[in-house]
């Protein structure tokens, strides 16, 4: 699936998107997998209360299942308007 990062999450991880091969069942499982990769991921995902997630461009939560998902995005709380 494609994993996208925005704002300071993108800056901390150092890339805007990447292709990830994973069997993660939920968003939380994916976060655990990514955090184990390198320090920069662990740093970005250190405080999940400071993060929001969208699966296939719909806001959801970290318990959301990933079966069939094509795109997961991580970002800080939004500041539109």
């Amino acid at each position: 699936m494609d994993v996208l990062y925005f704002a300071w999450v993108r800056e901390r991880i150092g890339l805007p998107r990447e292709r990830v091969e994973t069997d993660a069942a939920t968003v939380s499982d994916l976060v655990t997998e990514l955090s184990a990769r390198e320090d920069r991921y662990a740093a970005a995902f250190a405080d999940l209360s400071a993060l929001r997630v969208a699966v296939d461009q719909e806001l959801t939560d970290f318990d959301a299942p990933l079966a069939g998902a094509r795109e997961v995005a991580f970002f800080p709380p939004m500041t539109g308007g």
């Binding site: 925005f6 704002a7 806001l59 970002f75 800080p76 939004m78 539109g80 308007g81």
Partner: peptide
């Protein structure tokens, strides 16, 4: 728009 539209300001 402020809290649910995917925009981020720097």
């Amino acid at each position: 728009l402020k809290s649910r539209a995917p925009f981020w300001k720097k």
